[in-house]
C-alpha cells in the first residue's frame, strides 16, 4: 500500500477517471473498485474520500443522485460536463507529470 501523501495528490484524478468511465458510483463502490483494480495497492480512506467528493460536488464537477436502498439512502456520484473536461485535463496533466518524474528520478523503463 502506498503512503497517504502519494494518494492525496492524485485522489481527485482517480475519482474523476473512475466516474468518467462508468455511469455512476457510490462511495463504497469507489473504494472497492480502486482496491480491486490496483490489487489492493491503493486503498482510499473514507476520511479523505468523502470530504473530496463533497468539495467536488460544490465545485460543480460532480453531481449526485439519491436512491433508496432498503432502509437507507445511497448517494450516487457522476461527472458533469465540466467534470469530464476536468477529468481529461487532470489525466493528461498526470501523464505528463509521470514522464517528468521518470526523467527526474532517472527511472529507466524496463524493456520487456
Amino acid at each position: 500500500m502506498y503512503s497517504s501523501e502519494l494518494i492525496k495528490g492524485t485522489l481527485k484524478t482517480i475519482i474523476l477517471k473512475l466516474l468518467s468511465d462508468s455511469d455512476k458510483m457510490y462511495g463504497y463502490e469507489i473504494t472497492q473498485k480502486v482496491k480491486e483494480l490496483t490489487g489492493g495497492k491503493i486503498q482510499l480512506t473514507e476520511g479523505a474520500l468523502y470530504p473530496t467528493l463533497h468539495a467536488m460536488e460544490a465545485q460543480g464537477i460532480l453531481t449526485t443522485d439519491v436512491v433508496n436502498v432498503g432502509n437507507r439512502i445511497r448517494k450516487y456520484y457522476s461527472v458533469t460536463d465540466l467534470g469530464k473536461k476536468t477529468a481529461n485535463e487532470k489525466v493528461s496533466e498526470y501523464a505528463d507529470f509521470i514522464d517528468t518524474m521518470i526523467f527526474l528520478l532517472d527511472l529507466k523503463p524496463k524493456v520487456g
Partner: peptide, 12 residues
C-alpha cells in the same frame, strides 16, 4: 449529506 454517505458506507 455527509451523514447519509457515511451511513451507507458503514452499512456496506
Amino acid at each position: 449529506e455527509l451523514q447519509l454517505n457515511l451511513l451507507d458506507h458503514i452499512c456496506c
